[in-house]
Protein backbone atom coordinates (compact mmCIF):
# COMPACT_ATOMS: atom_id res chain seq x y z
CA UNK A 1 0.00 0.00 0.00
CA UNK A 2 1.39 3.34 -1.01
CA UNK A 3 1.74 6.11 1.56
CA UNK A 4 -0.35 9.24 1.03
CA UNK A 5 1.78 11.90 -0.66
CA UNK A 6 1.74 14.27 2.30
CA UNK A 7 3.49 11.63 4.43
CA UNK A 8 6.34 10.86 2.03
CA UNK A 9 9.77 12.21 3.00
CA UNK A 10 12.27 13.25 0.36
CA UNK A 11 14.40 10.20 1.12
CA UNK A 12 11.46 7.95 0.24
CA UNK A 13 11.02 9.34 -3.25
CA UNK A 14 12.22 6.88 -5.87
CA UNK A 15 14.96 8.28 -8.12
CA UNK A 16 13.37 10.47 -10.74
CA UNK A 17 9.91 10.04 -9.23
CA UNK A 18 9.48 6.56 -10.71
CA UNK A 19 6.44 4.60 -9.51
CA UNK A 20 7.22 0.90 -9.19
CA UNK A 21 3.81 -0.44 -8.18
CA UNK A 22 1.65 -0.78 -11.31
CA UNK A 23 -1.94 0.33 -11.05
CA UNK A 24 -1.67 1.43 -7.42
CA UNK A 25 -4.10 4.29 -8.13
CA UNK A 26 -6.79 1.71 -7.44
CA UNK A 27 -6.41 2.69 -3.79
CA UNK A 28 -8.15 5.93 -4.77
CA UNK A 29 -11.88 5.31 -4.72
CA UNK A 30 -13.59 7.47 -7.30
CA UNK A 31 -16.94 6.07 -6.20
CA UNK A 32 -17.15 8.96 -3.75
CA UNK A 33 -17.73 11.28 -6.71
CA UNK A 34 -21.04 9.60 -7.47
CA UNK A 35 -24.42 11.22 -6.97
CA UNK A 36 -26.37 8.66 -8.99
CA UNK A 37 -25.98 4.93 -8.89
CA UNK A 38 -26.76 2.39 -11.63
CA UNK A 39 -29.26 -0.28 -10.63
CA UNK A 40 -29.09 -3.53 -12.56
CA UNK A 41 -32.06 -5.73 -13.37
CA UNK A 42 -30.70 -9.17 -14.14
CA UNK A 43 -34.03 -10.35 -15.44
CA UNK A 44 -34.15 -7.64 -18.08
CA UNK A 45 -30.43 -8.01 -18.98
CA UNK A 46 -29.80 -9.59 -22.37
CA UNK A 47 -26.11 -10.31 -21.55
CA UNK A 48 -24.88 -8.25 -24.52
CA UNK A 49 -21.76 -6.79 -22.78
CA UNK A 50 -22.48 -3.24 -23.95
CA UNK A 51 -22.32 -1.80 -20.40
CA UNK A 52 -19.00 -3.57 -19.81
CA UNK A 53 -17.52 -2.41 -23.10
CA UNK A 54 -18.61 1.22 -22.80
CA UNK A 55 -17.66 1.88 -19.17
CA UNK A 56 -14.84 4.48 -19.09
CA UNK A 57 -13.94 3.39 -15.57
CA UNK A 58 -13.91 -0.37 -16.14
CA UNK A 59 -16.11 -0.94 -13.12
CA UNK A 60 -18.43 -3.52 -14.69
CA UNK A 61 -17.41 -7.16 -14.93
CA UNK A 62 -19.19 -10.40 -15.68
CA UNK A 63 -19.84 -12.90 -12.92
CA UNK A 64 -19.98 -16.01 -15.07
CA UNK A 65 -21.05 -18.28 -12.23
CA UNK A 66 -24.07 -16.20 -11.38
CA UNK A 67 -24.55 -15.21 -15.03
CA UNK A 68 -24.85 -11.54 -14.21
CA UNK A 69 -22.86 -8.34 -14.60
CA UNK A 70 -21.61 -6.71 -11.41
CA UNK A 71 -20.62 -3.13 -10.64
CA UNK A 72 -17.66 -2.15 -8.49
CA UNK A 73 -19.10 0.80 -6.62
CA UNK A 74 -15.69 1.69 -5.20
CA UNK A 75 -14.94 3.25 -8.57
CA UNK A 76 -18.26 3.83 -10.36
CA UNK A 77 -18.50 7.61 -10.84
CA UNK A 78 -22.17 7.40 -11.78
CA UNK A 79 -21.76 8.78 -15.31
CA UNK A 80 -24.83 6.86 -16.46
CA UNK A 81 -23.37 5.58 -19.74
CA UNK A 82 -24.26 1.98 -18.88
CA UNK A 83 -27.89 2.88 -18.24
CA UNK A 84 -28.19 5.12 -21.30
CA UNK A 85 -26.52 2.63 -23.62
CA UNK A 86 -28.29 -0.51 -22.36
CA UNK A 87 -30.42 -1.75 -25.26
CA UNK A 88 -32.65 -3.72 -22.88
CA UNK A 89 -33.18 -0.89 -20.41
CA UNK A 90 -31.94 -3.24 -17.72
CA UNK A 91 -30.00 -0.50 -15.93
CA UNK A 92 -31.53 2.59 -14.34
CA UNK A 93 -29.83 5.44 -12.54
CA UNK A 94 -31.03 6.08 -9.00
CA UNK A 95 -30.17 8.68 -6.41
CA UNK A 96 -27.23 7.34 -4.40
Amino acid sequence: MTKPMEQISWQEIEAGGVITEPGNASCYHTGTWRSQKPKYDENACIRCWRCYVMCPDAVISPDLEKNIFVWNYDYCKGCGICAYECPAKAIVMEED
Partner: peptide, 10 residues
Protein backbone atom coordinates in the same frame (compact mmCIF):
# COMPACT_ATOMS: atom_id res chain seq x y z
CA UNK B 1 2.20 20.75 -4.03
CA UNK B 2 2.33 18.13 -1.26
CA UNK B 3 5.18 16.27 -2.99
CA UNK B 4 6.98 18.64 -5.38
CA UNK B 5 9.38 20.08 -2.79
CA UNK B 6 10.39 16.59 -1.66
CA UNK B 7 11.00 15.60 -5.27
CA UNK B 8 13.26 18.63 -5.78
CA UNK B 9 15.13 17.97 -2.53
CA UNK B 10 15.75 14.43 -3.68
Amino acid sequence: PEIYAEAKMS
